[in-house]
């Protein structure tokens, strides 16, 4: 009798938790759908004219090439295969070339926007947040359109995606909807008055993914660039706030982002070297100057 009662209580608690989860999940999905519509409202995703060559700039600034190109093993550009050690296991970046079978060659603009801004796959499932959609949330519609055109024109590579090696079942991906409620910013619309440096650092460049502290569920509640003692692969990532960069002038930062040299003549290694190689060194000098200006401004505390 006693044991039966206990089982019943546990069962009831379990059901309650399950239904609360389901409700939040549904709400989250609803919210994401409505936000998406809002995001397309101001500049119609489907009518904007794409500038394909500018799309490469977007791909560089957003770090697509670095994470989706297995340079270490001479992999083809954008064909995926880069491993990421996360708290739930090892994830492998997918093929995002224009290959219609193994890549994303069949994706529409809307599907790409949905992936980058809402973290949703074309089949409606959630992406693991290793894809930094929390930062891409405020991506400008024109940038999505240009990136889409450039990706669709990329060399198709028929390489199947590598398998993730996770210690939790793939079904747990449903819980990402819950996670999004906590960490996907509420305002999806790009702010027209946002300085370009801030947009490059906090949105396209997603610097906070490594340079900010993550919480217990791997979410970044505060995107201040105060560093992360438990960075990728267990390596500590330095703070890059205005205070932390007090010995750097704007030219030092721009120079570092171009060739990886610190003010004292040391050279970046580890995980920043590929960022410089695939992303920041390809930007325009004005972009690096804008990033430096933002990093040394009072907002970056």
């Amino acid at each position: 009798m006693k044991i039966g009662a206990r089982v019943a209580v546990v069962g009831v608690i379990f059901c309650v938790i399950l239904s609360i989860t389901a409700i939040i999940q549904l709400q989250s999905n609803k919210r994401i759908e409505s936000l998406r519509r809002e995001a397309w409202r101001d500049a119609d995703l489907l009518t904007l004219v794409a500038n394909e060559s500018r799309g490469e700039w977007v791909a560089r600034a957003a770090g697509c090439i670095g994470c989706h190109t297995d340079s270490e093993n001479d992999g083809e550009m954008l064909a995926g295969g880069v491993g990421f050690d996360t708290p739930i296991g090892r994830m492998i970046s997918p093929n995002i070339t224009s290959d219609r079978r193994y890549g994303i060659g069949t994706w529409s603009r809307e599907q790409l926007a949905d992936a980058l801004i809402n973290g949703r796959a074309p089949n409606g499932s959630h992406y693991w947040p290793v894809l930094p959609y929390t930062a891409y949330r405020s991506m400008k519609t024109q940038d999505v359109v240009d990136l889409h055109a450039w990706l669709m024109a990329s060399k198709p590579i028929a390489l199947p995606d590598g398998e993730h090696n996770l210690w939790i079942p793939d079904a747990a991906r449903h819980l990402v909807g819950l996670w999004k409620v906590l960490y996907v910013p509420a305002e999806p619309l790009p702010n027209a008055s946002m300085p370009s440096g801030q947009y490059l650092v906090q949105n396209l460049g997603h610097c906070a993914e490594c340079h900010a502290q993550r919480g217990i569920t791997s979410g970044i509640a505060n995107r201040s660039l105060t560093g992360n003692t438990q960075g990728p692969h267990g390596v500590s990532v330095p703070a890059i706030t205005k205070t932390a960069l007090r010995d750097w002038i704007a030219e030092d930062i721009a120079f570092y982002l171009e060739i990886g040299m610190t003010p004292d003549g040391d050279f970046a290694g580890a995980h920043m070297a590929p960022v410089i190689e695939h992303s920041t060194s390809h930007l325009e000098p004005a972009d690096r100057a804008a990033i430096a200006e933002y990093l040394l401004s009072d907002i970056n505390q």
Partner: peptide, 16 residues
């Protein structure tokens, strides 16, 4: 100096 980064990336252990 590109070689400096290339070499550090693969062959230098990260301190701190």
């Amino acid at each position: 100096v590109k070689s400096c980064s290339n070499c550090h990336e693969n062959f230098r252990l990260e301190h701190e």
